[in-house]
């Protein structure tokens, strides 16, 4: 596993395929990389992507302030990310600089207190593709905000952009999603979906009618929701399941 450990003072990676210098990460080889924020703090990292890169990111029990940039310049990026933190204020900027560049961004989190996310995707060339998926569980009285801005600049024809965000509320939380698409031409394909609400009553009834208790029903639904299409390594999958089991025992 190509592991990158990020702490307040440094970005640690002991693999040759990555160059880390002055908060800039450059990948020499295509492949899958695992990144973990190991402690609370303020982070400002730029990832230069000119290969086919998958980054699996995670953070647990931290207070994070993040302002990261993913610069895709003749490559493709697949980000799969899971957070279970104390608080988060995160700004993500994704630039698609060359024709046909692509980003698949799949984020999931369990929000306990207050988390704010701003994701900006900039389509700066033709036939660029962005698929942004956010799946959240908002607990109790938590505050959870998403602002997603997709920008397609002039002449970036045949670009495809998709935003899909769902927040499942598990209490009296303050949740909002602002999906924005700023498109400066006609010839693009754009989709977005935003949903906030609890699990459907009929789904809960269906599972319980087969003898599954309410808490186990929630566990099944949450695991299914969080882990669907989250292609993560075994270790992280196990940890996510442990966290869900801890909340809904």
């Amino acid at each position: 596993m190509n592991k990158i450990l990020v702490s307040r003072n440094k970005i640690e990676c002991d693999i040759d395929s990555i160059i880390c210098k002055d908060n800039v990460v450059t990948f020499r080889n295509s492949g899958e990389y695992v990144l973990e924020y190991t402690e609370s703090g303020e982070y400002n990292i730029t990832f230069n992507i000119n290969k086919n890169i998958k980054i699996i990111e995670s953070s647990f029990d931290n207070d994070l302030i993040i302002n990261n940039n993913y610069i895709i310049d003749n490559g493709s990026l697949n980000v799969v990310k899971f957070y279970n933190n104390q608080s988060v204020n995160e700004i993500i900027n994704i630039d698609l600089l060359k024709d046909g560049d692509k980003v698949d961004y799949c984020f999931a989190n369990i929000c306990k207190y207050e988390e704010r996310y701003s994701i900006n995707i900039n389509h700066k060339c033709k036939k660029t593709i962005s698929n942004i998926t956010n799946k959240s569980i908002a607990l109790g009285n938590s505050i959870l905000k998403f602002i997603i801005n997709s920008n397609v600049y002039k002449d970036c024809i045949k670009s495809v952009l998709d935003q899909n965000t769902r927040i499942v509320t598990m209490g009296e939380c303050d949740a909002s999603i602002s999906p924005n698409m700023f498109i400066d031409l006609d010839d693009v394909e754009a989709r977005h979906g935003s949903v906030i609400g609890a699990f459907k009553e009929d789904q809960v009834f269906y599972l319980m009618s087969k003898g599954i208790s309410y808490s186990d029903t929630l566990k099944l639904l949450i695991k299914g929701y969080i882990l669907a299409n989250m292609s993560v390594h075994f270790e992280l999958r196990k940890k996510i399941i442990e966290i869900i089991d801890m909340y809904w025992r």
């Binding site: 789904q203 319980m208 009618s209 087969k210 003898g211 599954i212 309410y214 299914g224 669907a228």
Partner: peptide, 29 residues
Amino acid sequence: MSVDARSRLGIFLAMQYPLEIDGVSNQDF
């Protein structure tokens, strides 16, 4: 009695429109 308790007592309802639940694997369920 709760829905799940009724099921565990031995009552089974085969529904007219079985629900689709994305992400929950049939096996896990």
